[in-house]
Design a protein around this nucleic acid. Sequence first.
DNA 1: GCATAAAGTTAAGCCTGCTTAACTAAAAAG
DNA 2: CTTTTTAGTTAAGCAGGCTTAACTTTATGC
Lengths: 149, 149
Amino acid sequence: MTKPLPISRALRGWMDIFMHRSMRSWMHFARSTGLSMPQFSILMQLHHKGSFGMSQISEKFDITAAAASQLTEKLVQGAYIERTEDPNDRRAKSIQLTPKGKELIETGITERYRWMDELVSKLSAEEKPKVIEALNILTEAASKLDEKS
Amino acid sequence: MTKPLPISRALRGWMDIFMHRSMRSWMHFARSTGLSMPQFSILMQLHHKGSFGMSQISEKFDITAAAASQLTEKLVQGAYIERTEDPNDRRAKSIQLTPKGKELIETGITERYRWMDELVSKLSAEEKPKVIEALNILTEAASKLDEKS
DNA sequence: GCATAAAGTTAAGCCTGCTTAACTAAAAAG
DNA sequence: CTTTTTAGTTAAGCAGGCTTAACTTTATGC
């Protein structure tokens, strides 16, 4: 363990506390829906990217095409997603969230945001602008980092 | 959806990008160890809190005592944890990480930190102090929030 | 001291995710 | 037009996590 820089220390401290909190609430919500984690993860991905093919799922989650097919089948049964044929390539299928699926995920996100809103309420008027500026700096840097990977 | 305050927007933006990144790398690492998520979670908890009784595990993870017992058994088999008798109450057992278990978790944490270190390297000299200050503010506020819950 | 409660363990059985293997159907290659 | 590749499905079977139910062992209440 080499001694971390002050800024790394600050980032790590924040991350530790933040991860613990977020993960807990996320796992808890996933459970409460009755869906399994893999199923839930697929819904999350769909919410983020809009739509997906089977093969992209098996790639993203590093499972076989068979597994992807079976997982999505259950989500279709539960009416969380819809499977439609790609008119350009009739072998391929595109899946997307139904309104029911969308609502479920959005509820989960709202719950994850709740803690952050509480956090915001603890900040003083002088602190807020500083926090905003710093977070924007970080977000900016992070998206640059993601671009090229 | 009520319109969020600017500071909430900043926090949410940061959180979205941050969660995506962290979760991916964490899940990926958990997989690479060959351990299941529940097993891995137990090791994480132990790393954080030092030691635990069976009953606390079943409570924390919301599973039956039987399930907790079986899960820990596998971790004992794998030599990741150690189960010792509580001298005060010989029914109770206390479990803790072995050096092997500790090393595994620390490797995982180091990997999660790597991305953050890359992120830090993208920041300018003027940005760094601002980020440090803001993160400390947030961390402080978050730990106050956690205390009373 | 004896009955009851509490902490864990073990076994049987269920459900889920995953894999491999065998298949269907559509597209691309030759 | 035939062969090969690609996208996805289905079925059989295994491994893991979880539950309930039946224990064992130690502590507590009266």
